[in-house]
Computed example of a mutant assay.
Amino acid sequence: MTLGPDETGEIRLDTPTEWTSTVVGHHRLRHDIAVIRLIGEHVPFSAGQSVEVQVPQHPGLRRRLSPALPPSLDGKLEFHVRTVPGGWCSGSIVADTRPGDQWSITAPAGWLSVDDWATDVVMIAGGTGLAPLRSLLLNLSHRPEPPRTHLFVGGRSPRDLYASDMLFLLAGELPWLTVVPVVESADDPGWADQWYESCRVDVGFDVNEMLEGTLADVVGDMGPLPDHQVLVCGSPAMTVATVDRLIQTGTPAEVIRYEGI
């Protein structure tokens, strides 16, 4: 018998605190990015939260990842994983994950969420910081009146926008969503990425539709956002720089929620 919180935060008996999920898909999108899909026990997290995962390649080691899908009763999970420089665990997840692998899921946590009262939302995603924001977007789509939402998604170059096709299609399906792609350089690196070449599609944003600069600069140039709820997720450095710039340009700190990954 175990103790755990229910949906109201109350502790009750017989609530599992660890869940098992099986890898059913491993899709390498870039040399350093993979999308992992799993199915298994229902994990009671909230859209926008992260969970701790333990993979068979590294028993005993847990890494915190953010699901890119809202919770589902049929136990579907999706994670976007990027190799962290010097991070042997993330590199192994990207390169070595195989269908049939059993993952252990624990410890849902985090405070990225969109309040019911919000009518205008700005989401700012750097790299795989997109994952929890995508989960929130799909969750918002079930509201009777979703808030007007601008998603700024950033990368080093156009090739770095690994979910460009998915976001392009999603923006076409959701009339309340505007996606703004942002790149630090309009030119891709001069070396070939075999994974990018193998999954290249003709759907996505044209380079002429992309704003050039860092996410912090592009969003900061918009001026203050006092009437918006603002969510920021990405690398710790990107998150700190973006939040600092937002506050410097007049956005109240109390409307900003952020998570470094």
Score class of each variant (00 low, 15 high):
Thr15Asn: 11
Arg156Met: 06
Thr251Val: 11
His27Thr: 05
Leu170Phe: 02
Pro44Thr: 07
Pro5Gln: 05
Met166Phe: 04
Asn139Gly: 07
Gly86Met: 06
Ala118Leu: 01
Ser46Gln: 15
Trp176Thr: 07
Gln194Cys: 05
Trp19Glu: 08
His80Met: 05
Thr149Ile: 06
Arg156Asn: 05
Leu38His: 00
Glu7Tyr: 14
Asn139Thr: 08
Trp176Ile: 06
Thr119Pro: 07
Pro252Tyr: 00
Val218Glu: 07
Leu246Ile: 09
Val183Cys: 10
Ser185Glu: 10
Val81Phe: 04
Trp88Thr: 12
Trp117Ile: 06
Met238Ala: 00
Val183Ser: 06
Thr239Arg: 06
Tyr196Arg: 07
Met123Trp: 04
Asp188Lys: 01
Leu215Arg: 09
Gln248Tyr: 14
Trp111Thr: 10
Gly154Leu: 02
Cys89Gly: 12
Val183Met: 08
Thr249Lys: 08
Val81Cys: 06
Thr249Ala: 04
Glu52Phe: 14
Ala95Cys: 09
Arg37Val: 09
Pro99Asp: 01
Trp117Gly: 02
Leu137Cys: 09
Asp221Gln: 13
Ala241Val: 12
Ala131Asp: 08
Leu151Glu: 01
Ala118Val: 01
Gly234Cys: 11
Cys233Glu: 07
Gln49Asp: 03
Val255Lys: 03
Met222Asn: 04
Thr8His: 07
Arg148Ala: 05
Pro236Trp: 02
Gln102Tyr: 06
His58Phe: 13
Phe152Ala: 05
Leu136Ser: 04
Asp116Val: 11
Ala47Pro: 00
Asp74Glu: 13
His142Asp: 12
Gly127Asn: 05
Ser141Phe: 13
Ala186Val: 13
Pro108Asn: 08
Asn139Ala: 12
Phe168Glu: 10
Pro147Val: 00
Glu259His: 13
Ile105Cys: 02
Pro175Met: 03
Arg200Met: 04
Arg62Gly: 11
Val35Met: 09
Val24Ala: 07
Gly25Thr: 01
Ser90Ala: 00
Ala192Arg: 08
Phe45Gln: 01
Val35Trp: 03
Ala95Leu: 13
Ile105Val: 15
Ala118Ile: 00
Gly155Cys: 12
Gln102Glu: 14
Leu13Tyr: 14
Asp160Phe: 03
His142Leu: 09
Ala125Phe: 01
Ser46Ala: 14
Leu151Thr: 00
Trp103Asn: 05
Thr239His: 02
Ala253Pro: 07
Ser141Gly: 12
Gly223Pro: 08
Gly223Ala: 07
Ala192Asn: 03
Asp221Val: 03
Leu38Gln: 02
Ala95Ser: 14
Thr249Gln: 12
Asp221Asn: 14
Ile36Leu: 09
Glu7Asn: 14
Val219Asn: 07
Asp32His: 15
Arg134Phe: 13
Arg134Val: 12
Pro224Gly: 10
Pro189Gly: 04
Gly129Val: 03
Tyr162Phe: 13
Leu112Ala: 09
Asp206Ser: 15
Asp187Lys: 14
His26Phe: 08
Leu167Gly: 01
Leu225Met: 07
Ile11Arg: 15
Val182Thr: 01
Ala237Arg: 15
Ile105Asp: 04
Arg134Trp: 12
Thr178Tyr: 05
Arg63Leu: 00
Ser157Asn: 15
Pro70Tyr: 03
Gln248Trp: 13
Leu161Val: 11
Thr2Cys: 05
Glu212Arg: 15
Glu197Thr: 08
Leu38Tyr: 01
